[in-house]
Amino acid sequence: MSEPFLMRALLAGLGLAVIAAPLGCFVVWRRMAYYGEAVAQAGLIGIAAGLALSLNLTASVLVVTLAVSMLLVVLSRQQLVPFDSLLGLLAHAALAIGVILASLVRGPQLDLMAFLFGDIFAISATDLKWIYVGGALALAALVYVWRPLLSLSVHEDLAAAEGTQVERVKFIFVLVLALVVAIAIKIVGVLLTIAFLIMPAAAARPLSETPEQMALFAAIFGSLSVALGLFLSVSLDTPGGPSIVLMLALFFVAAILPTVLRGRR
């Protein structure tokens, strides 16, 4: 682990694991996995725009994820098309537009894989700053809305009747999600970002008695998966992002297996 690129990869992955854990719990609780997927896939448009205009890619992705989040807030108010269908539509339209834009910008020899699955070994010092500063901001915002967000995730009307500022809290959550997705795309790519959010949380659920415990276990599973995934990647020369996600999947299976074997819970 003396190689600087490996050190940066580890720091990036661990940072993301800690940020993604509590946020991922809310994505699971609020059933927003598909929502997150749509926002993440739209990130590819941001990458293409960033490449075309030679901008910082995380910044240009952030602009797009924020814009798509706003769009979804507006679109969620219509009821003609079910929201999950709309999310699927948007996710794949965005993916198609992103791939087309990227290939127009860079030509057919563009390494799409790096954007779809991330390139954790190419993390720069600037990327690390994004992860840690942006991540600290995201965590602070999440701590700030933790209690009302938890309350409205349990029962929205009850929370609203008790005086929770439901729309405001949900809005902050959506912004935090857009920020973390933008940070994560550089590391695990547009296709694996949501996995990095929901898999540690899902693995943590069977072991947890409180919401905070679930976030803590998720952070532990995420961090261990990063370390083990990078080790696997270096040992067998497998791609970094998918190797981490494989470890997350194994943790999930190990965590849920006793429950499944015991019967229903």
Binding site: W29, S153, D157, L158, E209, T210, P211
Partner: peptide
């Protein structure tokens, strides 16, 4: 205002003790 809504479905995805639920609002 104390409110008891018509429908209360427990979300099993959220680990929550009764005591915590009671003081969540």
């Amino acid at each position: 205002v104390g409110y008891v809504p018509q429908r209360f479905e427990v979300d099993r995805a959220i680990p929550l003790t009764v005591a915590r639920f009671v003081e969540l609002g």
